[in-house]
């Protein structure tokens, strides 16, 4: 794609704004389903990652913020963790803008950076505000580590490290799968969407798609 002058305001198109509720809902549904399936993960940043990859860091960060504020309405414990979700959005969006999801090794570097950003923001909250406790089952592992003599910071960070990296890999994988099936005519409408368009389809197929919905109900 051509280099173009970048402005924050341009990121916040109506379409990008309307994607935020969906991102939040994906985060929410991911978290719900993960707990429903009894997975030892959160999976509550998939939407943030998704929207950040399509619309950049600011929209991603906002999606993260709103996610935790909305979750906070039901349980205020989530509110301080908003900063983690914001970090996920900002970092992912920035990486996407820099083309850091282009191939497999960039992909791995991005994964590590995303996980680090989460840990750097989450660990202080977990340790300083919640004394090492989170609402998930991973707290048991933290506690075990502490019982075997690890300091609280070490215990929290090492637990978070394992599960956050795992969580980000899965979340990113899901995001990638979604991006692959989003129609190209939709992708092109997002500021970073063009990067995910791989093959150029023939004119007819796309036109067919564009006009297909015109006449569904006409028979």
């Amino acid at each position: 794609m051509k280099e173009k002058k970048y402005s924050i305001k341009k990121d916040f198109t109506l379409l990008a704004l309307l994607l935020i509720p969906i991102a939040v809902a994906i985060n929410f549904a991911g978290g719900q389903l993960a707990s429903l399936l009894k997975l030892p993960l959160y999976l509550d940043t998939i939407g943030t990652i998704f929207v950040a990859m399509l619309c950049g860091p600011w929209v991603g960060g906002l999606a993260g913020l709103i996610t935790n504020l909305v979750l906070g309405i039901a349980n205020p414990i989530y509110i301080p963790f908003a900063i983690v979700n914001v970090a996920v959005g900002l970092v992912t969006g920035y990486l996407a803008r820099k083309g850091m999801f282009a191939n497999w090794w960039k992909w791995i570097i991005s994964m590590v950076i995303m996980a680090l950003a989460s840990i750097i923001t989450a660990a202080p909250i977990v340790v300083l505000m919640f004394g090492g406790i989170t609402s998930s089952g991973t707290s048991l592992i933290t506690a075990t580590l502490m019982a075997t003599g690890a300091g609280i910071w070490g215990a929290v960070i090492s637990t978070e490290l394992v599960f956050t990296v795992l969580d980000r890999i899965i979340s990113f994988g899901i995001t990638y799968l979604i991006l692959r099936v989003v129609p190209e005519r939709t992708l092109i409408k997002f500021s970073l969407g063009a990067a995910y368009i791989k093959t150029k389809k023939t004119a007819e197929t796309v036109e067919e798609v564009t006009e297909a919905d015109e006449d569904v109900d006409n028979l």
């Binding site: 109506l14 379409l15 309307l18 994607l19 969906i22 809902a25 994906i26 549904a29 991911g30 389903l33 993960a34 399936l37 009894k38 997975l39 030892p40 998939i46 998704f50 899965i170 899901i174 799968l177 979604i178 099936v181 989003v182 129609p183 939709t186 409408k189």
Partner: peptide, 28 residues
Amino acid sequence: NVFVRSKAFIPSMIPLILGSITNTEERV
């Protein structure tokens, strides 16, 4: 087990998300 359950999780999410993205365009 976790792996079996994870395999069920992903296909259940994607149609959900795709549908809402398509709706977003018309919502705009």
